[in-house]
Structures are given as C-alpha cells and as structure tokens.
C-alpha cells in the first residue's frame, strides 16, 4: 500500500474514524478543564516528509509536543502539538496558579501536560479500538518543549524509513474563546494503515 494511492473513500473513512476518536478525547478534555472543547473537521494530510514542519506552523515555532506510541493490534504514533501560549493557558486552568513565564516548564507542569496527553490519547484510542474491534494501547507519554521542527523529526523516522510521504490525520480542537487549542495527529505506520482500512472495510476501495 502506498500512501499516494489512497482513494477518496479511504481518506473519508480515515477522517470519520478520527472524528469519532477525537470526539471522545474532546469530551475528556472538556471535563478536565470544565469548558466546552470544540473540534474542527479532521483533515487527512498527505505530504512530503520535508514539508511536515511547515504544517505545524513552521520549523522554528515554539511548541509543546506530547508524543505517544500506539501499541497493540495496529502500530503508529500520536503527536499532540500545543502552541506555547496555549500550553501555558492549559496549565493555568489545571494548576490554578502562576506558571512559568516563558522559561522552561517545571517538573509539575511537564507532568500535568503529559497527563493531558495521556487522557486525550487514551480516549481517542479507546474509541478507535472499539469501533475497529481491535486493542489499541497508548504508551507512556513523553514531552518536549522546543522548536516544532526538532519536536517532530523523531516522529517522522518510522515513516521516512519506508517512503518519502507522510500521512497524518489531523484534528484541531479549541475552546470557545480559543484560549486552549491544539493539534492532534495520528500517524499510523504503513502496515497499520492497511490494518485500519481493512477493519473499516475500505481496504479495497
């Protein structure tokens, strides 16, 4: 299966699957923050690997990246990207106190953000797994607060080993006043993409 060969039905199916997964994740985040969290329509981004940093707002943009591996019946990566200001807002809401003002994140802040990542990914994968009748488990989350280009390159390694194109299912979520927003990326590896499409019943168009 080549990423470039995916047809419209398959792309639609991936968008829909991600929408359901993200719906659960947004509910979990809403409960955590006590605010409504909305979703934009998911996009399936098929792009050259070298262009991925641009999709994240530019290679030099400061972001918090939370990364988890998907373990179980299908493998892949989940990457959540929060622009720096938004990560700080989430922390203000969660920790109800003065936060770091632009320097490094404290250990408590890192831990709180990882927990946010863990909850989002677990809700997402749980919904996805139920729908696809497979077991999908998130690994322990890890976090990096740095330039987007530096945060993402590690995640691209799996994809780069098999081709020059990346497939990312991206969903943007935001609170009504846009104080909290972020991007959730599902990056299935190529064999898993096939497994997922087969489970949805659209592997052969």
């Amino acid at each position: 299966m080549r990423i470039a060969d995916l047809n419209e039905t398959q792309l639609d199916a991936l968008r829909e699957v991600s929408n359901i997964g993200m719906g659960h994740a947004a509910t979990a985040l809403s409960q955590m923050l006590g605010k409504t969290v909305n979703l934009r329509v998911p996009q399936v981004l098929v792009t050259d690997i070298s262009k991925v940093p641009e999709l994240l707002g530019g290679a030099e943009k400061m972001v918090v990246g939370i990364y988890l591996q998907i373990l179980g019946s299908a493998r892949g990566n989940i990457l959540m990207i929060f622009p720096r200001e938004n990560a700080i807002r989430i922390l203000e809401k969660l920790l109800s106190r003065e936060n770091s003002r632009g320097g490094l994140l404290s250990e408590l802040e890192v831990s709180a953000l990882k927990e946010v990542g863990n909850i989002l990914a677990s809700a997402y994968l749980n919904a996805l797994g139920t729908m696809l009748k497979m077991t999908l488990i998130p690994s322990v989350p890890v976090l990096s607060f740095d330039m987007a280009g530096a945060v993402v390159d590690y995640v691209l390694v799996d994809l780069a080993e098999v081709g020059d194109q990346s497939l990312m299912v991206e969903t943007e979520f935001f609170e009504d006043d846009e104080q909290v927003k972020g991007h959730f990326f599902l990056l299935p590896d190529t064999p898993s993409l096939q497994i997922i499409l087969e489970a949805i019943g659209v592997l052969h168009g």
Binding site: I49, S50, A59, M147, G149, A150, V151, V152, D153, Y154
Partner: peptide, 23 residues
C-alpha cells in the same frame, strides 16, 4: 534547507536550517 534536503553556497552565501532535533 528543509528536512531531508541539502544546498550549496559560495561566499558570501548563507545556508540556514531550522529546528534540528534528532536530525
């Protein structure tokens, strides 16, 4: 210079690449 790209330059040219992580 983007990810997985290279470039050449002669003086006084400058080559710039953003955000190297494990790259």
């Amino acid at each position: 210079i983007g990810l997985s790209e290279y470039g050449l330059a002669a003086a006084p040219g400058v080559l710039l690449t953003y955000g190297l992580g494990s790259c």
